[in-house]
Design a binder for these strands. Structure first.
Lengths: 204, 204
DNA sequence: GGAACAACTAAACAGTGTTTAGTACATTTG
DNA sequence: CAAATGTACTAAACACTGTTTAGTTGTTCC
């Protein structure tokens, strides 16, 4: 019965074709400028076809977000081999920042835009986000146990680190750092991350 | 010649009427759901009239943002009387957080949304943001001079504090804290701010 | 009273996300 | 093999969006 398998494969390929075209257009032109019609044009199908593979535009962009999280989580895994928790936290922060700078549009989709999250209310619907957060959470737990860091609990520590990183990126991506000369941005942001990781450590 | 004055006053009143209607609709239904037509309906004028007072939707929402910044800056002024810089920074942070929680839609407009900023490229076009940042900058400068805080320079300190506050609010407002139980959010966020202000101080 | 000007609007334009009804082809069945 | 079923796709429409144009109405000025 190879025939149904072939159909399934073709279906998956078509889904991927749409996803890839949408992702490319989104990265180069943004969300608003990526209309269902422009995606359809790019893959040379009619707009209605896209609705045979995705419920609506939101679901399509949620799928793009999921793929982006896969990349981020894959990058995260590269720091797992670092034994010392503080070094691992430093490395994780760097991977996170690098991802944001390499793919600002995708970062936007994952952590800033409302659109892909509008119908996500429960944690189960955002498994990818959960996994990424757990990565940080475990590092903080280990750091607390090793008395390297002085947070009341792991959630507080993880939230503090994450919100600092996110705040820097979000203000930058959304153009709110106009009051700081542009040539200072990069240096200042990486200095801010460094100093934050210094500050949270317990002084000996 | 009171006649031209009356006309000017009427023009300003009409502008304010549009602004207020748009602001109300935006706060209760969001940006997308606040169309030029719904604003026009609310004030019982035709959609085209709105374009006699604002170049486009973006300019209209930029004006709403400006008004929101006026409120924030007014709130900021209430901490000026606090002499001790660290206490003043703590108070400023609280005012900032309280504003964000009281007016999440406006906070979004001021610090997250791309729309009102799309045609703002130079600092001069964002005077309000500049003023708000300076408020924090001066406190950090004073704290550094008094050796209460150990940042290399004031810009680094201000960016660190602001991005942390913004990160917490932005992740919360845009629904990215799903991995943390909702009942913990408020406590955790205020604990995070407190601990940050503790950490940046020089230990004696 | 007639000209100039201002405020306002109806209607249209080009775009959006999405749905419906129907076509054309591949597969399965009698 | 021919007819029936099922699947993939699309043209066209619907109800919306921001914005512009041309034209109407009413006020102000000489």
């Amino acid at each position: 019965m190879g025939i149904t398998e072939r159909k399934e494969r073709e279906k998956a390929e078509m889904r991927d074709l749409i996803l890839q075209a949408a992702s490319d257009l989104f990265v180069e032109r943004g969300y608003e400028q990526t209309s269902i019609r422009t995606i359809a044009d790019k893959i040379e199908y009619s707009p209605a076809t896209i609705y045979l593979y995705f419920k609506d535009k939101q679901e399509l962009f949620h799928a793009i977000m999921d793929k982006a999280f896969e990349v981020l989580l894959h990058n995260f895994k590269s720091v797992e081999k670092i034994a010392e928790p503080i070094s691992r936290m430093r490395a994780l922060s760097e991977v996170y920042m690098k991802f944001a700078y390499a793919h600002p549009a995708l970062y936007d989709l994952m952590f800033i835009m409302t659109k892909p999250m509008d119908h996500v209310e429960h944690a189960e619907d955002w498994d990818c986000g959960f996994q990424a957060f757990n990565f940080l959470l475990e590092i903080v737990e280990e750091s607390i146990e090793a008395k390297l860091v002085n947070f009341k609990n792991a959630h507080l520590g993880a939230l503090t680190v994450w919100s600092h990183l996110h705040g820097l990126i979000a203000l930058h991506i959304r153009g709110r750092l106009l009051m700081i000369p542009e040539e200072m941005h990069e240096v200042l942001i990486s200095e801010s991350v460094d100093s934050m990781i210094e500050l949270i450590q317990i002084k000996k």
